[in-house]
């Protein structure tokens, strides 16, 4: 390769990274103008702080029982969010529960994305495999989401790890379809055709050129999916299929509080609000991101 050409490529690469940074800055600017999205970000930020610093911001272990102090209402001395039916501090349980739902959400979304992206890329790019993979995806789609998760848990047994696996499998078909759609449109672009004629390998084209151009819908999907994953974990735990006692999982806490609805309503309301806020936050953030990432949307 002649020197001048190499220099040209280098400067082009520089421009590319510069361009990427610019895209991120513009997106962030757009995002920060969306008040709801900022609110969502704020809530998520708080949840992350709670999850990371859980042991330092609570005085009690979330699983230590104190039967004499059970069913204290919100605003009690030493327990500002009250205690549950076994005298466990509600604040500690909510904080450690934040950790669980964040971890479960992240892990299951990442697992689901990995599977979904791989399937979507292959299916969109290689015409021969397209039919097979999409029929398999259709098969997964045939089950209503939560039923599919319950089926998988019924096969694997009840535990939080299995809930993560079930939710990630449930995320695969949607993600695969979204990615495939983007791949189909991107691969017809001139620069991809150019790369092909230059002799670039399939994997290089897929990972370095097609995938980055499919990122926008994937980011939006992943954010929204966090909300679904957290909600589903709680739903499954509520049904007794997820976290096993004494794990302070929010959905399991609501299920346990059900019997005490009339005497200690805070046992259901507090974790209920926690789930609601977090799910709402991820949803509005996802909405905001979609608007911000859409090049057709104007700043004003």
């Amino acid at each position: 390769m002649p020197a001048s050409e190499a220099v040209a490529t280098q400067s082009k690469l520089g421009k590319q990274t510069e361009g990427k940074q610019k895209v991120i800055v513009v997106t962030l600017k757009k995002l920060l103008k969306n008040r709801l999205a900022v609110f969502g970000l704020f809530i998520i930020f708080i949840q992350i702080l709670m999850a990371v610093f859980a042991p330092w911001i609570t005085h009690y272990s979330p699983v230590t029982q104190s039967l004499v102090n059970s069913e204290l209402p919100v605003g009690s001395e030493n327990h500002w969010l009250g205690t549950d039916n076994y005298g466990r501090d509600m604040w500690s349980r909510i904080v450690f529960g934040a950790r669980i739902s964040l971890v479960v959400g992240l892990v299951s979304v990442i697992l689901g994305l990995t599977g979904g992206i791989a399937l979507g890329l292959i299916s969109g790019y290689f015409r021969k495999l397209d039919g097979w993979i999409m029929r398999f995806v259709d098969l997964l789609f045939a089950f209503p989401g939560i039923l599919l998760a319950m089926l998988i848990i019924a096969m694997l047994g009840t535990s939080l790890v299995n809930v993560m696996i079930a939710i990630s499998i449930w995320s695969i078909p949607t993600c695969a379809r979204i990615v495939r759609g983007s791949v189909l449109s991107v691969k017809k672009q001139e620069y991809i055709v150019a790369m092909k004629s230059l002799g670039a390998g399939n994997s290089r084209i897929l990972i370095k050129h097609i995938l980055p151009n499919c990122m926008a819908p994937i980011i939006v999907f992943a954010t929204m999916r966090m909300a679904t994953a957290i909600l589903s974990t709680s739903a499954l735990s509520f049904l007794g299929l997820g976290a096993q006692p004494p794990t302070p999982e929010w959905g399991a806490m609501i299920a346990a509080g059900q019997d005490y609805m009339w005497t200690s309503p805070h046992m259901t309301i507090v974790p209920g609000i926690a789930i609601m806020l977090v799910v709402f936050a991820f949803n509005v953030l996802g909405d905001g991101l979609r608007d911000a990432l859409d090049p057709n949307m104007d700043l004003g």
Binding site: V63, T64, Q65, L67, N85, Y86, P245, P246
Partner: peptide, 11 residues
């Protein structure tokens, strides 16, 4: 039964 299980587990 769940109440027994949780209390016994903690103890």
């Amino acid at each position: 039964y769940m109440m027994m299980a949780e209390i016994v587990q903690a103890q």
